[in-house]
Design a protein around this nucleic acid. Structure first.
Lengths: 128, 128
DNA sequence: TTAACATATGAACATCTGTTCATATATTAA
DNA sequence: TTAATATATGAACAGATGTTCATATGTTAA
C-alpha cells in the first residue's frame, strides 16, 4: 500500500527526504516572521523610504517630495513601517521627523544589495 | 512665494534635506530590483521552499508533502523562484530535483534571521 | 501500446494590498 | 478666535497575486 491511498493526488516522495528536512527546519513561526519582514521590504516605496531615512532623518513632507508621492500615500506606508518597528518618529512642532528604529533593516538591505550586485545579475554557470 | 503654488498640496520640506538625500541615494532601478528580491522572499511558502532546499535538494513531490500543499501550488511557486533565478532544477527520470541556484538567498535569509532573533541564534544548517 | 506517474501551466476566482479621496486631529501663525 | 499647516486614517476602488481546477506534456512500467 502506497501513500496514494491517503489523498486524491499521488505521492511518492523521496524516501526519508521529508523527515530529514523536517527535523532540521526552523520553526514554522520563525519562517513566517521572516516572510513578514521580507514582505514589508518587498515594496519599492517602502524600500525607498527606508533607504532615504538611512541617509538622513526626514519628515513626511520631505519624503513626499523626494519620492513624488502624496502625503497620504507616504503616511500610510510610514504607518506600516512603524507597526513593524522599522521606523520611529519624533514630533517637532507640527512635523513628524521619521528615522530608522534600529540598524537591522539597514544591514539586511546592505547584505541583499551586496549580493545582488556582486555576481547576482549574471547567470552563475553552475557545473552540472 | 512657496512651493504650494506648484501643487494641490502644500509643501514646505526641510530646506536642503531632499537635495541632500537625493544626491546620496542609490539609483532608483537598484532599489526597485532590491524590492523585487524581497517581494519574492516575502511569501511564507517561498521562504519555506528556499529554507527546505538549503537543507537538502528536493523534488516537487517532497515539497508538496513537507509543506502540505498541492503539487500545483508548489509548482507555481517554484516557477516564480526559477524565474528569479533563486532555484534551479535537474531532471531525474520523471522527477524534477530542485536546488538553490546560489548562496545569495541563503545568506540574506540568515542575515535577516540573525537580526530578527538578535542574540546569536543557531540556524540549523544542512551540510551537503 | 496502454496505464500510471511527475510535473507544468493557463484560466478563473478570491484575497490581499496600495493609492486616492475625504475627513479628522493637532499645532502654529495672524 | 480663525486660518493655514502637517500629519493621520477610514473607506472605496483598482490592481496584483496565490490557490484551485482542469488539462497538457513527458517519463516509466506493464
Amino acid at each position: 500500500m502506497t501513500k496514494s491511498s491517503e489523498c486524491c493526488n499521488t505521492h511518492n516522495p523521496t524516501p526519508g527526504a521529508v523527515e530529514f528536512v523536517q527535523e532540521k527546519m526552523c520553526p514554522k513561526e520563525t519562517l513566517n516572521d521572516l516572510a513578514v519582514t521580507f514582505k514589508i521590504l518587498g515594496e519599492p516605496v517602502r524600500i525607498k523610504i527606508l533607504h532615504a531615512l538611512s541617509i538622513r532623518d526626514l519628515c513626511v513632507c520631505d519624503l513626499s517630495e523626494l519620492l513624488e508621492m502624496s502625503h497620504s500615500a507616504i503616511s500610510h506606508q510610514l504607518r506600516i513601517l512603524r507597526t513593524a518597528r522599522m521606523v520611529r518618529f519624533e514630533k517637532n512642532g507640527r512635523r513628524a521627523i521619521y528615522s530608522l528604529n534600529d540598524k537591522h533593516v539597514e544591514i539586511i538591505m546592505q547584505t541583499a544589495l551586496a549580493h545582488m550586485l556582486k555576481d547576482g545579475c549574471e547567470i552563475p554557470q553552475g557545473e552540472k
